[in-house]
Design a protein around this nucleic acid. Structure first.
Length: 584
DNA sequence: GCCGTTTTCGGCCCGACTGTTTTCAGTCG
C-alpha cells in the first residue's frame, strides 16, 4: 500500500473544500455539516491520519467520522486525491468559494450570482456590481450591491486574526471605555477570547443593563470604530481598524449565565450542549434552559454554573469548551485538577544581556522574585546562535560563576539554576561539549537553523538531542511563529515517544508568538506520559507576565499541575533534577 | 453524512438582524 504523507491540515482542507462545493451546489445542509465536522475532527487529531491508517486504526471510531469519511480519508492517503472532489471542482467554479468569504454572502447568494450573471470569482463579481447588474437580480437590491462592493475590500484583510496578547490589549481598552458608562451592570468578553484560543477572530461583548440604548451609544463612541455593521434592540456589531469585528449583546440579568455560556462557545461545544439538553427534555438558548414541554418554564439561566448543573454537567472552564474531551466520563476530575497560573513555581527558559536579552542577570532575578517565583533557570543562547551573540564554553562558565555568587547572596530564599539553551546544530550534534554541558544544572535544547530540512532530518535531530544524556528538555519543539512562520516538518509522534523513553520534558513556550507545543500536541504528549514544562522564554523583565499564555495552552490541553514540571516546589524540582541529571 | 440505554430511519441547535419583502429567506455566530 502506497501511503502519501498528507498532513491532517491538508486532509481537513480537502473536506472543508468538499463542504463548500457541496453547499454551493445546494446539497442537504446536514451533509455539508458532516463534512465540516469531519474536517474539524481531523484537524484536532493528535497523530497524523496517514500513520493511523498505516497502523490499521479504524478512523470511523473517531467522533464525527463515519464510514464514508473514513473511506474517503483512506482513498486520499493512498492515492493523494479524491475523485468526488475532482468532479465537484468541474461542476462548481472554484472562485465561488471566495465569494462566500464576503460578509453577507453565503452559498445560496453566491450560486445565484453565478447562475444569473455568470459570476466566476471576486473579479467578475466586482465587475457585475460596478455595472449595477447585481442590484437587478430578484432577492438582491441596491444596498446588497453596495455592501458587496465595500466588503470585498475587507476579504483580504479579514483573514487576519489577532494574537492573544493583542486581543488582551484591546479588551483592556474596551473595559476602560465602558468604565465610563453607568448604564452597564455586568460586562464580560466571551467567544474565543474567553476560551483563550491562541488567536482571536473577533470579540464578543456581553452586557446586562437597564438601558441597552445607553450602552450601545457608548459602544458607538469607541474611538477605533470604523463602521457600525448592524444595530438592533439587543445586538450591535462594529468593525474597527484592520477589518476586525466586535459584537455586543445586551441581555437580561436572569439570562446572564445562559447568554455567557452561549456566546462563549465554541459552536461545536454548544451544539453538543443543546442536543444533550434535548435528550433530557430541556431546551437551551441564550435566554436560559427551558422545559421542552412547557417553554414558559425557566429551569436555569442566571449563572453558567446552574446552566451546566441542570444538564448534569460540572461547570466547564471556557478553555475546555471545544467539544474534545469536556463531556467525557473523566471530565469532572480533569476539571477539578486543571492547572492554574498560581501553580507555577519556576521558569526554566530565559535570556539576559549576556546574549539577546534586554536585562541583566540581577534584574531578571529581581523581576522573577517580584512575580512570585521560587526559582528560575538562566538559559542564554549557545555560540552557534551568533545573531544573538551566543555564548561559547568560556563565557558560559563565566556566567555560571556569577550565578554561583548570586545564589550565595540569595541565601536559599530563591534559587537561580545554571542553564543553557543549547542549539541543536544542522548536522545533528549539540553546539557545546559534553564536558561543558555536564556542569549545567538545566539544559534545554532547541533548533534555530536548518528549519527547512526534511521531516526525517528534523525529527532525527530532535530525537538525538532528547537521547543526549545531558539534555533535560526541548524548547519550542515545532519552531512555529504564529501567523508568520510555519512549524518545521517534524514527526511529533516520534518526538513524544523519544521524550517518554528518555524521560525528558517538552516545552510549552508561553511567548504569544510561539505557544508551542500547542494545546493538541501538549495533550497528546501528556497522554503518552511525557512531562511538560511551561516557560516564558523571557527576553526582558516584562516577559514574566507572558507565563499566563503558556498556562492557558496547558489548560486548553486539559493538563493538571502534576503533568507540568515547573509547578513543583524548589525542593521537589531539585529532587527531580537529581534523578534526571548525569554528572559524569 | 453522522448517529443511536426508546431509534439502522429520521432526526440533525437556535435566535437576531438585514434586505428584500408584504411574510420571509439568507446569513451569521
Amino acid at each position: 500500500m502506497n501511503i502519501h504523507k498528507i498532513t491532517n491540515e491538508a486532509l481537513a482542507a480537502i473536506f472543508e473544500e468538499m463542504a463548500d462545493l457541496l453547499e454551493l451546489s445546494g446539497e442537504n445542509t446536514f451533509r455539508v455539516r458532516a463534512y465540516r465536522n469531519g474536517a474539524m475532527a481531523i484537524a484536532s487529531l493528535a497523530s497524523p491520519v496517514a500513520d493511523m491508517i498505516a497502523s490499521g486504526v479504524d478512523l470511523s471510531d473517531i467522533e464525527g467520522i463515519g464510514s464514508t469519511l473514513a473511506e474517503k480519508s483512506k482513498v486520499i492517503v493512498e492515492t493523494g486525491h479524491l475523485p468526488q472532489l475532482e468532479k465537484l471542482r468541474q461542476e462548481v467554479p472554484r472562485g465561488l468559494r471566495d465569494l462566500m468569504r464576503i460578509p453577507g454572502l453565503g452559498a445560496k447568494k453566491a450560486m445565484k450570482l453565478h447562475q444569473e450573471l455568470g459570476v466566476l470569482d471576486l473579479a467578475s463579481l466586482r465587475d457585475a456590481c460596478q455595472r449595477g447588474a447585481v442590484a437587478a437580480i430578484k432577492g438582491f437590491g441596491e444596498k446588497t450591491q453596495q455592501s458587496i462592493l465595500q466588503n470585498m475590500d475587507i476579504v483580504e484583510k479579514a483573514s487576519k486574526r489577532l494574537a492573544i496578547d493583542v486581543a488582551d490589549a484591546l479588551v483592556t481598552r474596551l473595559r476602560a471605555h465602558f468604565q465610563e458608562c453607568p448604564a452597564i451592570n455586568q460586562i464580560e468578553f466571551a467567544g474565543s477570547y474567553r476560551r483563550c484560543k491562541e488567536t482571536v477572530g473577533d470579540l464578543d461583548i456581553l452586557v446586562t443593563s437597564d438601558s441597552p440604548t445607553a450602552v450601545m451609544d457608548r459602544f458607538a463612541e469607541f474611538p477605533a470604530i470604523q463602521e457600525i455593521l448592524a444595530r438592533g434592540e439587543t445586538k450591535m456589531s462594529v468593525r474597527i481598524s484592520d477589518a476586525f469585528q466586535i459584537d455586543m449583546r445586551v441581555v437580561e440579568p436572569d439570562a446572564w449565565g445562559a447568554a455567557l455560556q452561549y456566546f462563549t462557545g465554541s459552536k461545536e461545544h454548544n451544539v453538543h450542549v443543546r442536543s444533550l439538553a434535548k435528550s433530557k427534555g430541556l431546551k437551551v438558548n441564550e435566554y436560559g434552559v427551558f422545559d421542552a414541554n412547557d417553554e414558559s418554564r425557566l429551569v436555569a439561566g442566571k449563572t453558567e454554573q446552574e446552566v451546566y448543573q441542570v444538564l448534569g454537567l460540572p461547570w466547564i472552564p471556557p478553555e475546555l469548551r471545544e467539544n474534545r474531551r469536556e463531556f467525557a466520563s473523566d471530565a469532572a476530575s480533569r476539571i477539578a485538577h486543571l492547572i492554574r497560573w498560581e501553580d507555577i513555581q519556576g521558569d526554566l527558559h530565559m535570556h539576559t544581556t549576556a546574549t539577546d536579552g534586554e536585562n541583566t542577570l540581577e534584574e531578571m532575578v529581581q523581576a522573577a522574585k517580584d512575580s512570585g517565583l521560587q526559582y528560575i533557570a538562566i538559559t542564554d543562547h549557545s555560540k552557534r546562535v551568533s545573531v544573538a551573540r551566543g555564548l561559547d564554553e568560556a563565557k558560559l562558565i563565566e556566567q555560571w560563576r556569577a550565578i554561583d555568587a548570586l545564589n550565595q547572596k540569595l541565601a536559599g530564599a530563591f534559587h537561580v539554576f545554571k542553564g543553557i539553551e543549547c542549539d541543536i546544530l544542522e548536522e545533528g550534534p549539540l553546539d557545546l561539549s559534553d564536558d561543558c554541558l555536564r556542569q549545567a544544572d538545566w539544559v534545554t535544547a532547541s533548533i534555530h537553523f536548518g528549519q527547512k530540512q526534511s521531516r526525517d532530518q528534523i525529527t532525527d535531530r530532535i530525537v538525538r538531542a532528547i537521547a543526549h544524556p545531558c539534555v533535560h528538555s526541548i524548547s519550542h519543539p515545532t519552531g512555529r511563529l504564529i501567523s508568520r512562520r510555519n512549524p518545521y516538518d517534524v514527526d511529533m509522534t516520534a518526538v513524544v515517544q523519544a521524550a517518554k523513553e528518555y524521560k525528558k520534558c517538552l516545552e510549552i513556550n508561553a511567548n504569544p508568538e510561539r505557544l508551542d507545543l500547542n494545546d493538541i500536541m501538549a495533550a497528546n504528549a501528556a497522554d503518552a506520559g511525557v512531562l511538560l514544562v511551561i516557560n516564558t522564554d523571557a527576553h526582558s523583565v516584562s516577559h514574566f507576565a507572558l507565563m499566563k499564555y503558556g498556562v492557558q495552552v496547558a489548560r486548553r490541553a486539559g493538563l493538571s499541575k502534576d503533568q507540568v514540571l515547573n509547578t513543583r516546589s524548589l525542593s521537589a524540582f531539585r529532587e527531580w533534577l537529581a534523578q534526571h541529571t548525569v554528572r559524569s
